[in-house]
Design a protein around this nucleic acid. Structure first.
Length: 549
RNA sequence: GCGCAGUUAGCUCAGUUGGAUAGAGCGUUGGCCUCCGGAGCCAAAGGCCGCAGGUUCGAUUCCUGCACUGCGCGCCA
């Protein structure tokens, strides 16, 4: 990061001196192979395209000036078709250590978001049953995304949208009611297919009967209402507890029912009608989403007078923007991807720019046990709950697995593998790196080893040390990329790489057994900088950084 | 039928404004514990980046077509 900034500055001014305009598509990035130096710039290649000159000749001009630009640049090589391969002086690399020491928990943070108000809405599972593992993935991604965005300078808020209105909710009340009738021997017909068949419904009915033995004596409508209210609260308390156990935090719990009851939905429909975006046809109210790129118009109010989810979703998003969010990210299950065009159309109709609305799709989780698939369906009552999975594998392991793949690709989650404390399970690899460093610190204290004050950082010139320094310098870029792409998995990949370098260096670069205390102390500071960076990254994932394991 | 994703090593996957000899882990094979934690390290083998065209000095990356897989396409929620 520092290195990229430094080199960009030098190259831009050199390009100016030579009388060229800055090439727009020029890129400075770490080369794939470190034998090509610390950073590679394609300036000459891009300039050659713009000016019609020979790329290697241009590279020669640039390299000549770059070599003398600063003592921080150790060497500049011209390679291949005209790449500039730049290697920095060790002193420049070593300077990242005090930088990390001073920044501490903030190392890697940025002001990319410039304080913009951002809302991330995630999980938002219907409170008709406990959270399952798929919700867990969405929870991990949403929560981590909030952390990543805050770290990148956004003013981010986490929200859960509670679908507590509509037909699913009535089905919940009915399901509990029917189970209560069965438990009291008032019903023996088969349980309806379209009701929720999970065991938890029976448990709720039993609990409710214990508190309200006369439940099934009530009139049906009233009884179902009681069942609904009780069930909603019971299930929702469970959801909140599951999220808490998973270290997932929501700032706001937004109720759909409140939106309906306040008249906000009706108001939104009125506004759409007035602006000519909604029209009546066949007794229903339609939204002209085709005007904004959807492939057909969508119904807002059915001919039977009831509202569609889409209607309240528009009102909900209007409310988000009314609350002052500059940008909104919805985290959705990938099976809802067909919903994106109409939601985009709705946001456009609200007068918002494209950038104000993003959807992060979360693909299905394939739950396996020793390679065999476990089926998952709420309606069929067969599923592995998030709580069960957490009890089995722990929060850290689950989160790391969820965040180690890009969200939009399917994920195999094998309970047996995630439980294993091996490299099948990279969370331990990363945490172990942190714990190992902590162990060194303890050892150094116990045995009167070198102290940070004795360090001579200029002694850090071994290959393994320079590799670590180089990678530490890249963490801020990884954090920015994760925010820019709304992809927390960039962080997990960075952490695995850093842990790998640490384990490699660990074997050959002792602190206690260093040739002298100044070197040992310098290594200690290097290790502590690595630990700090590991912590910062793990915190972005919501995974703990243990001092011992 | 239409739309959206995906297809990279035996397996699971990275690779985002087009760059050099395409990466990682697991698995396989062979090494490393008188040495701060071996939950570790080192080395080797393993690839027509789905197929075919196109654009480009250069394509896993961009465009077109095709094949296969998954998902979605209701006045459902």
């Amino acid at each position: 990061m520092r290195a990229v900034q430094l080199l960009t500055g030098f190259l831009d001014s050199i390009v100016g001196e030579l009388g060229f305009s800055k090439p727009a598509k020029a890129v400075i990035e770490p080369p794939k192979d470190k034998k090509f130096g610390d950073l590679a710039a394609n300036y000459a290649l891009v300039l050659a395209k713009d000016t019609g000159k020979n790329p290697r000749e241009l590279a020669g001009l640039l390299a000549e000036k770059l070599r003398t630009a600063s003592p921080e640049i150790a060497s500049v090589e011209i390679a291949g078709p005209g790449f500039l391969n730049v290697t920095f002086a060790p002193a420049f690399r070593q300077a990242v250590i005090p930088l990390i020491e001073n920044a501490g928990d903030n190392y890697g943070s940025s002001d990319l978001g410039a304080g913009k108000k951002l809302q991330v809405e995630f999980v938002s599972a219907n409170p008709t049953g406990p959270l399952h593992i798929g919700h867990g993935r969405g929870a991990a991604i949403g929560d981590s995304l909030c952390r990543v965005m805050r770290f990148a300078g956004y003013n981010a808020e986490a929200e859960y949208y509670i679908n507590d209105a509509g037909k699913q909710m009535r089905t919940l009340g009915l399901s509990i009611w029917l189970r209560a009738l069965e438990l009291t021997g008032k019903r023996s017909e088969p349980f309806p297919e379209d009701c929720y068949k999970g065991e938890y419904i029976i448990d709720i009915a039993r609990e409710l009967l214990a508190k309200d033995p006369g439940l099934t004596e009530r009139p049906e409508a009233e009884g179902q209402d009681v069942c609904y209210e009780y069930g909603l609260k019971d299930i929702f308390d469970g959801i909140k507890k599951d999220l808490l156990d998973f270290g997932v935090h929501h700032d706001e719990w937004f109720s759909e029912r409140s939106l309906v009851e306040s008249g906000a939905v009706e108001q939104t429909l009125e506004d759409l009608k007035r602006s000519g975006r909604a029209f009546e046809q066949d007794g229903a109210l339609w939204f002209r989403t085709t005007e904004h790129g959807d492939d057909k118009d969508r119904v807002l109010r059915k001919s039977d007078g009831t509202l569609t989810y889409f209607a309240s979703d528009i009102a909900y998003h209007a409310d988000k923007y009314r609350r002052g969010f500059d940008r909104v990210i919805d985290v959705w299950g990938a099976d809802h991807h067909g919903y994106i065009p109409r939601m985009r159309a709705a946001v456009a109709a609200l007068g918002k720019e494209q950038e104000a609305f993003d959807v992060v799709l979360v693909q299905l989780v394939n739950l396996l046990q020793g390679g065999e698939q476990i089926a998952m369906s709420t309606r069929a009552g067969k599923f592995e709950t998030l709580a069960d999975v957490l009890a089995e594998v722990g929060s850290d392991a689950a989160r790391f697995i969820f965040l180690s793949r890009k969200s939009d690709s399917k994920l195999d989650f094998d309970l047996e593998l995630v439980k294993q404390r091996t490299m099948d399970n990279p969370v331990y690899y990363v945490q172990y790196a942190h714990a190992r460093i902590a162990a060194v610190g303890r050892r150094v204290n116990e045995q009167n080893g070198p102290t940070p004050a004795e360090a001579d950082l200029s002694l850090l010139v071994a290959e393994e040390e320079l590799d670590l320094l180089r990678l530490l310098d890249r963490f801020p870029q990884a954090a920015r990329d994760a925010a820019h792409m709304a992809s927390p998995h960039f962080i997990s990949h960075y952490l695995m790489e850093l842990a790998g370098l640490l384990h490699r260096a660990y074997a050959v670069l002792p602190v206690m057994g260093a040739e002298n205390r100044a070197l040992g102390a310098a290594r200690l500071r290097l290790l502590n900088a690595v630990a700090q960076t590991l912590r910062n990254g793990l915190t972005l994932l919501g995974v703990s950084a243990p001092k011992s394991m």
